[in-house]
């Protein structure tokens, strides 16, 4: 690590780019060169880390275009000979990934909307409104963050089974909402804490009811927070396996995660290409969101954990 501190000091004093865009001559002094050399092992380490992170994903993408013949006879490192889209068509239709994807969308987004609406309202009631016992209620919500999912599976399963809800996606929507609420409520309360109460008091002077000022003033003011929480909850729910596996009783109701889990056993055991294509389809949604919003996702997910 001494080498790195040396390199560190060197880097700190490296002059900024001159107007012409080239480094000044000073950077060619021997000390600088030694500092640059000292950085090589560290740079190699960084490259190594990036390869380990990114290569499996590139390999996944490449494999999804290979034919069965290439899997059996070719090297694992070989590039696919053609862009074989047939794998994707097979995974989507024969492998039912299309159906599973639409189930996931139909279960996740209603739950997400409910979590945001109910959680924000509850956060507002617990933080902005003034009443006795709100700390107790907040604490009751906090307990929910700790409880393992296994603790609530059997009673909920019994209820859904006996009310006949098991034949629909409702068990997923209801359970996701309930599980998402503790963290959402808690974090929304934190966001409302930074808004002075006077804002809401002032709005009610104009005759608006407090509920109306929640929707017209409170909701828009925590827009950013809502967006962050929606992202975090989306990843939690979209990637969930336990709830989806327990509460869906027919293959027509499988979410994309449950579908992919069964894919290996039912169809993908012999069909390598379609299996890799199915994994790619599964990954695609989260990939797009992450590419577009990575900084917010990183902030949101890590913030959610520290609070939880």
């Amino acid at each position: 690590m001494t080498t790195s501190t040396l390199a560190e000091h060197a880097e700190r004093t490296v002059p900024p780019l001159s107007p012409s865009g080239r480094r000044r001559l000073g950077s060619r002094r021997p000390g600088r060169i030694r500092a640059k050399l000292a950085k090589i092992p560290l740079n190699l380490a960084v490259v190594f880390i990036l390869v380990i992170t990114v290569y499996p994903l590139i390999w996944l993408l490449l494999s999804s275009f290979k034919t069965n013949d290439e899997f059996v006879n070719g090297s694992v490192f070989a590039l696919p000979e053609t862009l074989n889209w047939q794998n994707y068509i097979d995974a989507w239709t024969t492998g039912n990934m299309g159906q599973y994807l639409s189930n996931s969308v139909l279960a996740v987004f209603p739950a997400l909307a409910l979590i945001i609406l109910l959680g924000t309202a509850a956060g507002f009631a617990l933080e902005v409104m003034v009443w006795k016992g709100r700390n107790g209620v907040l604490l009751a919500f906090l307990v929910g963050i700790m409880v393992p999912g296994q603790m609530i599976l059997l009673p909920l399963f019994t209820v859904y089974f006996q009310t006949g809800l098991s034949g629909s996606l409702w068990p997923l929507i209801i359970t996701y909402t309930g599980i998402g609420l503790p963290l959402t409520t808690f974090m929304m309360a934190t966001f409302f804490r930074s808004i002075p109460r006077e804002v809401f008091e002032a709005s009610t002077l104009d005759g608006a009811s407090i509920i109306r000022s929640f929707f017209t003033i409170g909701f828009p003011m925590v827009r950013n927070g809502i967006f962050t929480i929606a992202l975090v909850q989306f990843f939690f729910i979209w990637n969930d396996l336990l709830i989806a596996l327990t509460f869906t009783n027919s293959s027509a109701l499988r979410t994309i995660q449950v579908g992919l889990l069964n894919f290996t056993g039912e169809y993908g055991a012999t069909q390598y290409g379609p299996l890799f294509a199915a994994i790619c389809i599964n990954v695609f949604g989260t990939l797009v969101i992450y590419l577009a919003l990575n900084q917010r996702v990183m902030k949101g997910l890590t913030a959610g954990s520290v609070k939880g």
């Binding site: 990036l50 990114v54 990637n239 992919l260 997910l301």
Partner: peptide, 13 residues
């Protein structure tokens, strides 16, 4: 950003 990427991937995948 790159190293964080696997965090968001579904566990099953």
């Amino acid at each position: 950003t790159l190293v964080f990427f696997p965090v968001v991937l579904p566990t099953v995948a």
